[in-house]
Design a protein around this nucleic acid. Sequence first.
DNA 1: TCCCGCGCCAATGTATACATAAGCCGACCG
DNA 2: CGGTCGGCTTATGTATACATTGGCGCGGGA
Lengths: 247, 247
Amino acid sequence: MPQGEVTSGRRGKARSSRSVPSLQGLTEMAARERAYHDLRYRILTGRLAPGTTLLETELAALLALSRTPVREAVIKLEEEGLVEVRPRHGVTVKALSLQDFANILDVFSALEIRAFELSAERGLSPEQARLLDRMVEDMETATANGDIARWSDLDDEFHSEVVALCGNQRLQTALNAFWAQQYRARMMILPLRPLPEDSNAEHRAVLEALKLGDRALTRERHSAHRDRADKQQLALLRRSLGSSGLA
Amino acid sequence: MPQGEVTSGRRGKARSSRSVPSLQGLTEMAARERAYHDLRYRILTGRLAPGTTLLETELAALLALSRTPVREAVIKLEEEGLVEVRPRHGVTVKALSLQDFANILDVFSALEIRAFELSAERGLSPEQARLLDRMVEDMETATANGDIARWSDLDDEFHSEVVALCGNQRLQTALNAFWAQQYRARMMILPLRPLPEDSNAEHRAVLEALKLGDRALTRERHSAHRDRADKQQLALLRRSLGSSGLA
DNA sequence: TCCCGCGCCAATGTATACATAAGCCGACCG
DNA sequence: CGGTCGGCTTATGTATACATTGGCGCGGGA
């Protein structure tokens, strides 16, 4: 659970709340934070492959820290479900089975749908509506250009932006934790994805419902979107690996 | 996030997964676990009132431990949203505003509804159906006897039992975390609750849908149940305290 | 050759020591 | 008299030291 960037500004903008990329200020960070972000980054990007097992000592050496902050970081990662700690055997990067991934998507979708509902209920300001409109357009452009990676980023941003409007900080926090877990698998199947024509249409429909402030309609449409998208992702994953753990 | 009791048996029975009461084996437990459970217990039961602030040193003294395991426990409690750590000011038991409570219920309900859906999809075995039937009957008996406390316990068990059938461990874990948070407020308003005639009828309806294995129907009915129950709880809370933090 | 049991080693869990830096109070200056 | 600057105190964050316990391998016996 990554807490808010620096100090106050909880509710505020916090544009790109989902944080994998780049680890900008990796240095000059508190040791525990550094360990947490660094390890999380390595896991999400696959630099620490699932199944990898390291001793606390090794992790500490790897990060040039003592065991104390590393342990604390590991506790957080364990709560997030990214690693498993087996008392005499070190910490292992969890491998996600297809079943695990399905479970994660289930939780993630349930939460995200609720977040969308709440956002609909609160209503969009004109600027928010415009911003989201632009995002949908950008996604369509990316699709037209066949730029799936860019589309995927925008998709993330779109969902994340709507979630940010829901006004429930706890919901956002929970979503972030589960988002991290699905991210790994998402990246795996990226190149396999077909052009997301369906998603684009669904996004438009959902955004329409959001603009109307119609909670029930938003739920219905976003629910449909997630169901289809989740099923598609699972199918791709199943294809891309037998059904074993994934790298 | 309390991990599974001892070792394996993840999927298994795990009857009363929700654990506040009694702290049976408080002694002879690992220090970190002890600290975690002990503090959690004190917070949930109100022995550590919201707003209470203690230094790490004081907590350590309180539990007769060194700071290390206490810190680790505190990290977990912070992730769970039960305490707040302000670097030079100690750890504070979070006070729940009405808004916080509403947020918690929102997340909790979203997750629980999904869990019920999944359970419906998987279907109930005859024994499971019978067990749940008996629980509903017991609740009705408790209502008839005006024993609200017992009813509340059974209600918890009923929900928890259905959730346990959903087959998604991550979902269960997330639910447990949020369950802890709503528990505090639940206990506060217990004496104010009217006899839960509505809930009993709704339970029957939901159970009926579960037995049919009808996912959509289950979602609809349980969703209705949660909406009404949540609104009622919020109303009671609002009545019972202005709108400030709660003890 | 296979199985059982003992003993060593090392990884973790806990305690403690130490450095850092933030808050607070007092004093001094305007 | 009020405000601000500076130093002290102390809570935290990190490192390290220490004890425990469980795993694993080796040896002996069947």
